[in-house]
Design a protein around this nucleic acid. Structure first.
Lengths: 128, 128
DNA sequence: GAAATTGTATAGCAGTAGCATACAATTTAA
DNA sequence: TTAAATTGTATGCTACTGCTATACAATTTC
């Protein structure tokens, strides 16, 4: 699977995994009904423990994005997460934008990067 | 000081503090040469331990944004952080955008929110 | 219904976050 | 010039988190 874990990425591994899957769902690469790989397989692919993957799956399930069942496995349940507070959605955006500003980028440059990232994220979805 | 710590914010307190100060520097509210409050004072204001603030200050110093000296205190050193890899700047942006997409927002809505946040962030700076 | 497949629970270890308290450098002012 | 005040730093402790290894349990397959 189409996900990488990076040692020097500040995020914990399970979050890197869940973030990666979120991006795939948001981008339409993983559609509702699609079966996710078994925790053991994805764990082996990424070279981590199966419990780490299980944690990622549980997080996604808590957001309503996937369904996890014992003997079967994990399936994409929706491409829409449970509703969240506006502030909660804006906070990480602010943090990211702050770093871009501190990197010395001007407003139009920043808007360009955002548009570019959003385009690449949504590549393969009808929505936009 | 113009910063809040939120229990239910996933970030550790010292990161909430450093992020808050970063935003103030990026937005021009804190200019080069401006003295930051002593760790004890800011700690008392926010109801946390002084070491938590000290950790935040050290993080900002490591990025070149402030200068910390023993008997004196912390001073804003620059409104430009040390250079960072492009990927490192884009990653948190992607994560934030993903959440907006999963919240069901369409591309123009998302671009609007981004523009709005960027505007509010840069309010009070000449740059843009 | 036995074997294989798949997620779950438990236990342990290392690292992180936060706190209380003691220490050290610098500045202030007597 | 030195004592007091101010300001950051270091140490030690506790709770929690992230990750792992291993054992357990539900479901599916044959």
């Amino acid at each position: 699977m189409f996900i990488v874990v990076d040692e020097n990425d500040g995020r914990p591994i399970y979050r890197q995994v869940s973030d990666g899957i979120r991006a795939l769902i948001a981008g339409g690469e993983l559609r509702e009904g699609t079966q996710l790989p078994p925790v053991r397989q994805l764990a082996a692919d990424l070279g981590v423990n199966l419990n780490t993957i299980a944690t990622a799956y549980r997080e996604l399930q808590a957001e309503g994005l996937i369904t996890v069942r014992h003997g079967s496995g994990a399936v994409v349940a929706s491409s829409r997460a449970f509703e969240r507070a506006d502030e909660e959605l804006r906070r990480p955006l602010r943090t990211a934008l702050t770093q871009l500003v501190l990197a010395g980028l001007a407003r139009p440059e920043i808007m360009g990067i955002v548009a570019e990232e959003l385009r690449s994220l949504l590549k393969g979805t009808k929505r936009g």
